[in-house]
Every structure is written in C-alpha cells, then in structure tokens.
Computed example of a mutant assay.
Amino acid sequence: MSNVMSNTTSNLKQNKTVKSAVEAVIFDWAGTIVDFGSFAPTTIFVEAFKTEYDFDITLAEARVPMGLGKWDHIQAVGKLDSVAQRWSEKFGQTMLDKDIDLIYNRFIPLQKAKVVDHVEPILNAVNVVNDLKKQGIKIGSCSGYPRAVMDILIPAAAKHGYQPDCVVATDDLTHGGRPAPHMVLKNVIELGVGNVANCIKVDDSTPGIDEGHNAGMWTVGLLLSGNEAGLTAQQFQDATPEVLENARNKARLVMEKSNPHFLIDTIDDLPAIVAEIEQRLSVGERP
C-alpha cells in the first residue's frame, strides 16, 4: 500500500499525448468530493435520533458506520454497544426495524433540507476531476445517500463546477448497498467501461473501499478530508503539521482495515496515484 501526503500536485500534472490506461474513476460524494469532513450526513443522524425519539447519540457514534446506505447506517448505529445499552435502558428493548423506519423517515427530509449547506467542493476537487476528463478518463460516482437526496445534491454541486458523467444512489438498485459492488458496477455499465481493472474507486469510508475491492478495482482511501479525521476545511487549513499527523494516524487506523491500494490525504493528491496506476497497468499489473 502506497502513501502520498503532499498537499500540492501542480508539479505532478502531466501533458497527456495518449489516452490514459485508466478508463474511469468512481468517486464517493461526502468527504470525498464535497463536504469536507463529511458533516452533512453525520450531523443529521444526530438530529434525527433526537427529533424522533428524544434520544442522544454523539457525532462520533454517528460516524462509525459511515459509507453504508442510510437505513443500514441507522441500524448499525443502533447496534453499537454504547448506543444499544442506552437505548435498552431508555426503551426496555433493542432497536426494532420499525424504530429504524421512523428515524430514517425523519432523516430524509432533514437531509434534503440541509445537504446543500455542505455542498462546497473539497479544495481543488473540481480541477482534479476536470483534468482527469481531459485525459479521456470517465468520471463516475456513487453515494450512501438515497436518490431523493442526490436529486438535490447533484444540481447544487453542478453550480460549483462538479459534474460527474454518472451518478448512482444507494436505492437506485435492489441490492445497491455497500460493501456490495453493485453501485460501482452500475457505473461501469453506464460509462461503457471495458475492464474493471482499469477503474479506480476513491472513498473516505471502509465500506466504500470494500465496495471497490469487491468490484475488482483499484482503491484509494482518503485520510484527512473525510469521515474518519472529522476535520472541517478550516481546521485542515489552519492545522499544524503535528495536528494533521495525529488526524492522519487516527484515520489510517480505520482505513487500513479495508486494505486500500493507496492512502492519500485528499483528492488533491490523486493525480500522482493515477499516474502510478497508469504505469502499473502498462506493465500488466492488476488490482
């Protein structure tokens, strides 16, 4: 597993005279392309539990299952030892499917109302994506968000310049949820990709990395822009090297569990990884 930690990639960009060996890069959304720190979904989970059941969960607890579809995410939060114990003490039983349904139905309108508050692209994300397009690389995307939320997020992100070639939401498919590979494989089909080994999955969560592995793709995990570090964009920009290294190490402990091929800080570091994967593909290496 390689690590690239530079925060600038201007000296790594190459003028391509031939089409890239990489056919497609498939990105997650929150914590990967938009919403530095992945705050939109996590804060709304906290609010949905509180609003529907007057039950408190912490932001850290809300972050644990990040990357799953949102119904599955709520279920996973309810199964955390700390949450399950408090829930049982308050309600006298474990969380039931009907409880998850009620929290989910509360979550969706809250998320639809507030997702645009966290739509700003992560630093240099749009430039990186547009440079990939110039190399003939197709841009796919998938999300743990349902289609109802994506239908709001997609045009909002487009106003900031982010326009992927394909978007798949977690409920677009009968079996769409991560870590199953169905969402990324739907991207492969829609984008007309010839070989999944020529694709890269980029994500800030372990279910998203597992999704890429299960589809037979190269995988790139993000350490500092996503859920595990939990930094805001301002905190990231103001942080000392020591603070960043501590956040990086904290995120790495979780992300390494899914064994990504590469770990980088943010999407700003991705061009160097694409160049390395191109070189590996040229000598016949596969994920």
Results as ranks from 00 to 15, higher is better:
180 A>Y: 02
10 S>T: 02
9 T>M: 12
271 P>M: 04
20 S>T: 00
177 G>E: 14
234 Q>A: 14
21 A>K: 11
48 A>S: 11
169 A>C: 04
109 P>K: 11
51 T>V: 14
273 I>D: 02
119 V>A: 13
91 F>W: 06
262 F>A: 03
72 D>Q: 11
273 I>F: 00
135 Q>C: 09
43 T>Q: 15
12 L>C: 01
188 V>F: 13
137 I>E: 05
61 E>V: 02
57 I>D: 07
185 L>W: 11
25 V>P: 08
250 K>G: 10
277 I>N: 00
234 Q>R: 10
169 A>E: 11
202 V>K: 03
36 F>V: 06
160 H>P: 03
190 E>P: 01
95 M>C: 04
6 S>M: 07
64 V>L: 13
26 I>N: 10
58 T>A: 04
258 S>Q: 01
31 G>S: 08
123 L>Y: 14
208 G>A: 08
173 L>K: 00
106 R>I: 01
159 K>L: 12
48 A>T: 02
173 L>G: 06
124 N>V: 10
39 F>G: 11
103 I>E: 06
82 S>P: 10
80 L>E: 08
148 A>K: 10
198 N>Y: 08
149 V>Y: 10
118 H>R: 01
16 K>F: 12
97 D>F: 04
265 D>A: 12
101 D>P: 01
81 D>I: 07
120 E>Q: 11
4 V>T: 08
230 G>S: 13
184 V>R: 01
102 L>R: 15
14 Q>Y: 13
239 A>G: 07
166 C>P: 00
145 Y>C: 07
151 D>R: 12
66 M>N: 13
229 A>S: 15
27 F>Q: 00
88 S>E: 15
26 I>P: 09
141 S>P: 10
78 G>D: 10
228 E>K: 09
42 T>R: 15
145 Y>G: 11
159 K>E: 14
198 N>V: 03
27 F>A: 04
11 N>L: 13
284 G>D: 00
133 K>G: 03
268 D>F: 08
169 A>V: 05
122 I>S: 06
24 A>W: 06
233 A>K: 14
88 S>R: 12
101 D>N: 07
49 F>V: 06
28 D>F: 04
137 I>R: 05
28 D>T: 04
116 V>Q: 15
105 N>Y: 05
182 H>Q: 15
284 G>H: 06
130 N>K: 12
86 R>A: 14
231 L>G: 08
241 P>D: 12
33 I>F: 00
172 D>I: 03
189 I>M: 06
40 A>E: 04
20 S>H: 00
13 K>Y: 13
17 T>H: 13
230 G>K: 14
18 V>R: 15
253 L>I: 14
161 G>Q: 09
165 D>N: 03
244 L>F: 03
109 P>S: 08
198 N>L: 05
286 R>M: 00
218 W>C: 02
125 A>K: 11
85 Q>T: 14
140 G>C: 04
244 L>N: 02
279 Q>H: 11
59 L>F: 13
71 W>M: 04
171 D>N: 15
83 V>P: 09
150 M>P: 02
64 V>D: 03
15 N>Y: 15
37 G>P: 08
104 Y>K: 12
94 T>I: 12
73 H>C: 00
165 D>V: 01
260 P>T: 05
43 T>Y: 12
249 N>H: 11
222 L>I: 05
175 H>K: 11
14 Q>P: 03
108 I>N: 06
174 T>P: 01
120 E>H: 13
46 V>G: 04
280 R>L: 02
